[in-house]
Computed example of a mutant assay.
Amino acid sequence: MMISTGETLITTSDIDDLVGRVRLSAGDTRELEAAKEALFAGRLTPAEAQRIRQRLMVTALRHGGGLLAKVLGRLTPRETAMVRRYAHRLANYLDTLDIWAAQPVMLTLMRFGIPYDEAESIAVAILFQVW
Rank of each mutant, 00 (worst) to 15 (best):
P46D: 15
P77S: 12
R78W: 07
A69G: 13
P46V: 07
T80F: 05
A81L: 05
Q54M: 11
E79T: 05
R84L: 13
A47K: 12
V71A: 15
L72N: 11
L44P: 07
L67D: 10
G73T: 09
L44R: 02
L61Y: 09
R85W: 05
G42M: 09
R55V: 08
R55L: 12
Q50P: 06
G64Y: 13
R74W: 06
P77H: 12
I52E: 01
E79M: 05
R62V: 00
V71S: 07
Q50E: 15
G73V: 03
T59N: 01
R85I: 04
A60C: 09
R53F: 02
T45G: 07
V58D: 02
R55P: 04
E48L: 06
R53A: 14
L44K: 04
L61T: 03
T80A: 12
R53M: 01
G65M: 02
R43W: 01
A41C: 00
G64S: 14
R74N: 12
L68G: 10
R62H: 06
A41F: 01
R51P: 00
R78L: 09
A69C: 09
M82I: 03
L67Y: 15
G65K: 03
A81K: 09
E79I: 00
R74Q: 14
G66L: 13
A47N: 07
L61G: 08
A60G: 14
M57F: 01
K70E: 07
M82R: 14
E79S: 13
E48M: 06
K70W: 05
A49K: 11
L61V: 10
G65E: 02
L75G: 08
H63D: 06
T45I: 02
R62Y: 08
E79D: 13
M82K: 09
Q50C: 14
V58A: 06
R85F: 07
K70Q: 15
G65D: 01
L44E: 05
K70Y: 01
R62D: 04
G65W: 02
R78S: 08
L67R: 13
K70N: 04
H63K: 15
V58W: 00
T45C: 01
R43K: 14
H63I: 04
R53L: 02
I52T: 03
T59V: 13
A47L: 14
T80Y: 05
I52D: 00
A69E: 15
G64V: 13
Q50V: 12
A81S: 10
R74Y: 06
P77D: 14
E48F: 02
H63V: 10
L44M: 07
L75C: 09
T59C: 07
P46C: 02
L75N: 06
L44F: 00
R78M: 08
V71T: 14
G73H: 04
L72P: 06
M82C: 05
L44C: 03
A47I: 10
E48Y: 00
T59G: 04
L44T: 03
Q54A: 15
T76H: 08
G65P: 04
K70L: 06
Q54D: 07
A60K: 11
V83F: 04
T45A: 08
T76V: 08
R84E: 12
Q50D: 07
R53K: 15
P46N: 11
A69P: 08
M57P: 00
H63L: 07
R53Y: 02
